[in-house]
Amino acid sequence: MAIVADHLGLSWTELARELNFSVDEINQIRVENPNSLISQSFMLLKKWVTRDGKNATTDALTSVLTKINRIDIVTLLE
């Protein structure tokens, strides 16, 4: 997760939308982690794993990252 969080940057909100997080949930992550995109990205991934449990797999994440054109991160995960 740390590799993904380190590289997402501003794309974390796009990833959040693709992972079916609501606008309110995205804003809450922003408010709770106001000074760091990496912290926002990491919190998103943590919430995703908590919410989706065993369905929050590397394959699922890779699929969504591909959908938002972040092949650079997919390559890092391989």
Rank of each mutant, 00 (worst) to 15 (best):
Met1Phe: 09
Met1Ala: 07
Met1Asn: 11
Ala2His: 13
Ala2Arg: 15
Ala2Trp: 15
Ala2Lys: 11
Ala2Glu: 15
Ile3Tyr: 05
Ile3Glu: 07
Ile3His: 05
Val4Gln: 04
Val4Phe: 02
Val4Leu: 06
Val4Trp: 00
Ala5Glu: 01
Ala5Lys: 04
Ala5Leu: 01
Ala5Val: 06
Asp6Met: 07
Asp6Gln: 14
Asp6Tyr: 07
Asp6Ala: 08
Asp6Cys: 06
Asp6Asn: 12
His7Arg: 12
His7Pro: 01
His7Asn: 08
His7Ile: 04
Leu8Met: 05
Leu8Trp: 05
Gly9Val: 05
Gly9Gln: 06
Gly9Tyr: 01
Leu10Asp: 13
Leu10Ile: 11
Leu10Glu: 14
Leu10His: 15
Leu10Phe: 14
Leu10Pro: 12
Leu10Met: 11
Ser11Val: 02
Ser11Ala: 07
Ser11Met: 00
Ser11His: 04
Ser11Leu: 00
Ser11Asp: 15
Trp12Asp: 02
Trp12Phe: 06
Thr13Gln: 09
Thr13Met: 12
Glu14Ala: 11
Glu14Val: 13
Glu14Arg: 08
Glu14Pro: 05
Leu15Met: 12
Leu15Ser: 03
Ala16His: 04
Ala16Glu: 01
Ala16Gly: 08
Arg17Ser: 11
Arg17His: 09
Arg17Met: 12
Arg17Asn: 15
Glu18Gly: 06
Leu19Gln: 03
Leu19Glu: 01
Asn20Met: 11
Asn20Lys: 09
Asn20His: 13
Phe21Val: 02
Phe21Ile: 04
Phe21Met: 05
Ser22Tyr: 04
Val23Asp: 07
Val23Ala: 10
Val23Ser: 12
Asp24Phe: 04
Asp24Asn: 09
Glu25Cys: 02
Glu25Arg: 00
Glu25Val: 07
Glu25Lys: 02
Glu25Gln: 08
Ile26Cys: 05
Ile26Asn: 10
Ile26Met: 05
Asn27Phe: 08
Asn27Lys: 11
Asn27Ala: 11
Asn27Asp: 08
Gln28Gly: 08
Gln28Thr: 08
Gln28Asp: 14
Ile29Asn: 09
Ile29Glu: 09
Ile29Leu: 06
Ile29Ser: 02
Ile29Phe: 03
Arg30Cys: 11
Arg30Val: 09
Arg30Ser: 12
Val31Glu: 10
Glu32Leu: 08
Glu32Gly: 09
Glu32Pro: 05
Glu32Cys: 08
Asn33Tyr: 09
Asn33Cys: 14
Asn33Thr: 11
Asn33Gly: 04
Asn33Ala: 14
Asn33Gln: 15
Pro34Phe: 06
Pro34Met: 04
Pro34Cys: 04
Asn35Pro: 04
Asn35Ala: 08
Ser36Tyr: 02
Ser36Lys: 04
Ser36Arg: 06
Ser36Thr: 07
Ser36Cys: 09
Leu37Glu: 14
Leu37Pro: 11
Leu37Gln: 13
Leu37Val: 14
Leu37His: 11
Leu37Arg: 05
Ile38Leu: 09
Ile38Pro: 12
Ser39Asn: 15
Ser39Gln: 15
Gln40Lys: 07
Gln40Phe: 03
Gln40Asp: 03
Gln40Asn: 00
Gln40Ser: 07
Ser41Met: 02
Ser41Gly: 12
Phe42Ile: 13
Phe42Gln: 15
Phe42Thr: 15
Phe42Asn: 15
Met43Leu: 10
Met43Ala: 14
Met43Asn: 10
Met43Trp: 09
Leu44Asp: 04
Leu44Glu: 01
Leu44Lys: 07
Leu44Trp: 02
Leu44Ala: 06
Leu45Trp: 01
Leu45Lys: 00
Lys46Phe: 03
Lys46Leu: 06
Lys46Met: 09
Lys46Glu: 13
Lys47Thr: 10
Lys47Ala: 11
Lys47Glu: 08
Lys47Ser: 12
Lys47Met: 13
Lys47His: 11
Lys47Asp: 09
Trp48Ser: 01
Trp48Cys: 01
Trp48Ala: 00
Trp48Ile: 02
Val49Gln: 15
Val49Met: 11
Val49His: 09
Val49Thr: 11
Thr50Leu: 14
Thr50Ser: 13
Thr50Val: 13
Thr50Trp: 12
Thr50Ile: 09
Thr50Pro: 00
Arg51Met: 04
Arg51Gly: 05
Asp52His: 05
Asp52Glu: 13
Asp52Asn: 04
Asp52Ser: 05
Asp52Ala: 08
Gly53Asp: 05
Gly53Met: 03
Lys54Gly: 14
Asn55Pro: 04
Asn55His: 12
Asn55Phe: 10
Ala56Phe: 07
Ala56Asp: 04
Ala56Val: 13
Ala56Lys: 09
Ala56Met: 05
Thr57Gly: 06
Thr57Asn: 15
Thr57Asp: 11
Thr57Ile: 03
Thr58Val: 14
Thr58Gly: 11
Thr58Arg: 12
Asp59Met: 14
Asp59Gly: 13
Asp59Ser: 10
Asp59Val: 10
Asp59Gln: 14
Asp59His: 12
Asp59Thr: 11
Ala60Gly: 08
Ala60Met: 14
Ala60Phe: 11
Ala60Ile: 08
Ala60His: 15
Leu61Asn: 05
Leu61Ile: 07
Leu61Glu: 00
Thr62Pro: 11
Ser63Trp: 06
Ser63Phe: 10
Ser63His: 12
Ser63Thr: 14
Ser63Lys: 13
Val64Asp: 02
Val64Asn: 08
Val64Gly: 12
Val64Cys: 14
Val64Thr: 11
Val64Lys: 07
Val64Trp: 04
Leu65Lys: 05
Leu65Gln: 00
Leu65Phe: 03
Leu65Met: 04
Leu65Ser: 01
Thr66Leu: 11
Thr66Ala: 10
Thr66Gln: 15
Lys67His: 08
Lys67Asn: 06
Lys67Ala: 10
Ile68Leu: 08
Ile68Arg: 00
Ile68Gly: 01
Ile68Thr: 00
Ile68Met: 08
Asn69Leu: 04
Asn69Gln: 12
Arg70Gly: 00
Arg70Ser: 03
Arg70Asn: 10
Arg70Pro: 03
Ile71Asn: 10
Ile71Phe: 15
Ile71Thr: 13
Asp72Gly: 01
Asp72His: 03
Ile73Cys: 04
Ile73His: 03
Ile73Tyr: 00
Val74Asp: 00
Val74Arg: 02
Thr75Cys: 11
Thr75Phe: 08
Thr75Ile: 09
Thr75Asp: 10
Leu76Ala: 15
Leu76Gly: 06
Leu76Met: 15
Leu77Tyr: 03
Leu77His: 03
Leu77Val: 10
Leu77Cys: 10
Leu77Ile: 07
Glu78Tyr: 10
Glu78Gln: 06
Glu78Ala: 11
Glu78Met: 09
Glu78Arg: 08
Glu78Pro: 11
